[in-house]
């Protein structure tokens, strides 16, 4: 699971959960897979992302030194930051870990790179 994907995941499908975001991420095993840098795409993606979840993912992935805690105004002009965002969001692949609902504590496991967001019938 890429950390760009993580930024969109919620537990709001659970009955009674209001926001279900951000999920608390734990990484037990990760890999790095290089991919083509596309600064235009990142600039287009940024308005859809929640920066606080980008930053917390960076902390969990031990890349917090690369990413500012608050979103700078001029990301588009900062080539170095765009490169670091690319690495964080597209090149880190979480293989083993978990996502935890901030409201219920329900844990969604990540196994072999696949987050399992499926709920039981009695949870929806």
């Amino acid at each position: 699971m890429k950390l760009s994907t993580y930024n969109f995941l919620t537990s709001m499908a659970i009955k009674g959960v209001k926001v279900g975001y951000p999920l608390k991420l734990t990484i037990n095993k990760k890999d790095v897979i290089e991919s083509e840098f596309n600064p235009v795409f990142i600039q287009r993606l940024l308005p859809k992302l929640d920066w606080s979840a980008v930053y917390s993912a960076a902390q969990v992935a031990e890349l917090a030194d690369d990413i500012p805690a608050a979103q700078p105004d001029n990301v588009a002009e900062d080539e170095q930051l765009l490169q670091r965002l690319h690495h964080l969001l597209f090149e880190i692949d979480v293989l083993e870990g978990q996502l935890e609902c901030p409201e219920t504590g329900r844990v969604f496991p990540i196994t072999d790179g696949i987050p399992n967001m499926l709920l039981n019938e009695d949870e929806v």
Binding site: F8, I33, E36, D50, F90, I114
Partner: peptide
């Protein structure tokens, strides 16, 4: 590179951040 798979119910996706 650049491809993810999520185990989820497609019918639960609307109304979320997707």
């Amino acid at each position: 590179p650049n491809v993810d798979c999520i185990r989820a119910d497609v019918l639960h996706l609307p109304g979320s951040k997707w």
